[in-house]
């Protein structure tokens, strides 16, 4: 059984037939080959699989494909599709806000969503927004530094 869904992926209208018993994460990684989104735990505890849905970070491992219909989904691949890194991406590079990099797409997307909502979050707000994404390498201090740098609070 497939379901046709009409959705927007990284700004492009995308009409695809999906198996509705798959998760959004599976569709993104395996059907649309957007493998920048990773799975860390599969049960919504690690935040590794975060993508933006209508601008809001969500755990894509807990969403069935049918729920992507009518949504605007953004994945890490969408942030630099013009060939230029975004401000957040550049700040991550500059400050060294990544180690193994497995959580980085989720961190970058979540920080991007936060900064769109609030141009100048303070350290506590940044921590709260990123609190659902685990980084086992413990890149947290430099991730915080990177986001604050973009927010203008770090200057």
């Amino acid at each position: 059984m497939t379901f046709r869904i009409d959705t927007t992926i990284n700004g492009d209208r995308t009409v695809i037939d999906v198996d509705p018993t798959l998760t959004l994460l599976e569709v993104l990684r395996e059907q649309l080959l957007l493998s920048g989104t990773k799975e860390g735990c599969g049960v919504g505890e690690c935040g590794t699989c975060v993508v933006l849905c209508d601008g809001e970070p969500i755990a894509s491992c807990l969403v069935l494909a049918g729920d992507a219909a009518g949504c605007s989904i953004e994945t890490i691949e969408g942030l630099a599709d013009s060939g230029e890194l975004s401000d957040v991406q550049r700040a991550f590079v500059r400050t060294g806000a990544l180690q193994c990099g497995f959580c980085t797409p989720a961190m970058v997307l979540t920080a991007t969503a936060l900064l769109r909502e609030d141009a100048a979050p303070d350290a506590e707000e940044v921590k709260k927004a990123l609190g659902g994404i685990l980084c086992r390498c413990g890149a947290y201090p430099k991730i915080l530094e990177a986001v604050l740098e973009v927010s203008g609070e770090g200057a």
Binding site: G44, E45, G47, V50, C53, E56, P57, I58, A59, L62, V63, T110, K128, A129, G131, G132, I133
Partner: peptide, 8 residues
């Protein structure tokens, strides 16, 4: 839970 879960 955490923000990406609360959003769902």
């Amino acid at each position: 839970a955490s923000p990406p879960v609360r959003a769902l």
